[in-house]
């Protein structure tokens, strides 16, 4: 069984976290595209907290002795996936950023060239 105290902590933290994320998305502070992974992650934790048998069932399926370890494993996996999705998003915006900077340099040069032509 999952210790009772851990349950309470899980329920409180995950529900606060879930509502926090939901509220941020609602207020357009978080782009749903990037926060979807957080959304499902916190929703899953909330479900595990509310239905303790869920973690017991998963432990049995995976052959893990204590449900607490199952929860830790899932949290760990969730954290790494979230981190990785951030790295992907970062790489993508890095390339876009670079392209914009280059384009901007080229445009600046073009503008000053046109200015010079006009002045002549």
């Amino acid at each position: 069984m999952v210790p009772f105290k851990l349950h309470i902590i899980l329920i409180i933290i995950s529900s606060v976290g879930f509502l926090f994320i939901l509220n941020l998305i609602r207020r357009n502070k978080l782009e749903l595209k990037f926060s979807l992974i957080w959304f499902f992650f916190s929703l899953f934790l909330l479900l595990v907290g509310l239905f303790p048998n869920l973690s017991v069932l998963i432990s049995l399926l995976f052959g893990i002795e204590t449900p607490v370890n199952t929860i830790f494993l899932i949290v760990h996996f969730g954290t790494i996936s979230t981190l990785f999705s951030l790295t992907i998003a970062l790489s993508r915006s890095h390339v876009r950023n670079k392209n914009i900077i280059q384009e901007m340099g080229l445009l600046k040069q073009e503008i000053s060239e046109l200015k010079n032509k006009l002045e002549r």
Binding site: K98, I101, Q102, E103, M104, G105, L106, K108, Q109, E113
Partner: peptide, 25 residues
């Protein structure tokens, strides 16, 4: 000289590529 001023530091690769973009354009 004809100068292209990049608004942020891109490092050698990004700077040189700007030159190739200019050449292509």
């Amino acid at each position: 000289a004809n100068v292209i001023d990049l608004p942020c530091n891109l490092g050698i690769g990004g700077a040189v590529q700007t030159g190739y973009k200019y050449a292509y354009k």
